[in-house]
Design a protein around this nucleic acid. Sequence first.
DNA 1: GCAAGCCTGACC
DNA 2: GGTCAGGCTTGC
Length: 293
Amino acid sequence: MPELPEVETVLRGLQKSCLGQWISQVEVGHPGVIVGKPETFATGIEGRQIAAVSRKGKVLVAELAGRDNADEAFLVMRLGMTGQVTVEACATPVEPHTHVRMQFEGGEKELRFRDVRRFGRLRCSTRGELDALLASLGPDARQVTEKEFLLAMRSRRGAVKSWLMNQQMVAGLGNIYADEALFEARIHPLAQPDRISAAAGRRLYKAVRKVLKKAIELQGTSFRDYIDIEGRPGNYLPKLRVYQKTGKPCPRCRSSIRRMVIAGRSSHFCPRCQRRPRQVAEMRGPRDRQAKP
DNA sequence: GCAAGCCTGACC
DNA sequence: GGTCAGGCTTGC
């Protein structure tokens, strides 16, 4: 699933192969993946040049320049869970679930957006719309300072697992790297952010950085659908220590890895290395009783 | 039936 | 305003 390291890998690919390309024609197959009207989307992009590509959290942004210097636009891409962005020859057979094609001037290559589950979204935004979107995200998980990270943890309740995945707190983590970072930091996914000690908070900050850095070096994790713009899978899969390892031995202490659903998302952790804080049982009492049978 | 990111809406 | 459940989607 595309999280920060996968999006970063796609970004680097786009920087290599798309910068300076003019987009001559846009074809939208499934309007459901476009925010707004598909026609507006197409006309907003056609005839413009990819001037820059960037990323914040899991959001990819291509800055588009017009022939006339004044009219800029931004192609904003969110990959959802199965979204793929590829750049290939126009002649390459089109795979099923390819929803958008953008042909580059010259007629040889095109950018394709494929998304089996259609949770991904593409939009053409003005600078104002882009700024608003980016402002709704917390600092990028690779840019955030330790001070900002610890500050954002204060005054937040609920589970630290949910906190890590909340893009308004820190942008870029999804289920895989949240589980891996918590394991690295030896913090239970149900620990409460505002009750985590400064030392543990710092451990978590460092764990997030370490896990993301390594995952980017290995071009991300291909659990199912993820591929980069040239169609290659990532290489981080063998490095996963707890994600989807239910019942397998913990790589540190050999205890059996457990799975637990938190806020509707499966969480994987070692019950021995990541101790459940006592506060959780006390705080959660009333809510636990309401839980469905 | 499960997996996931993100949005909406219910609840306190 | 924070917190969380539910729904979207489809291949395994």
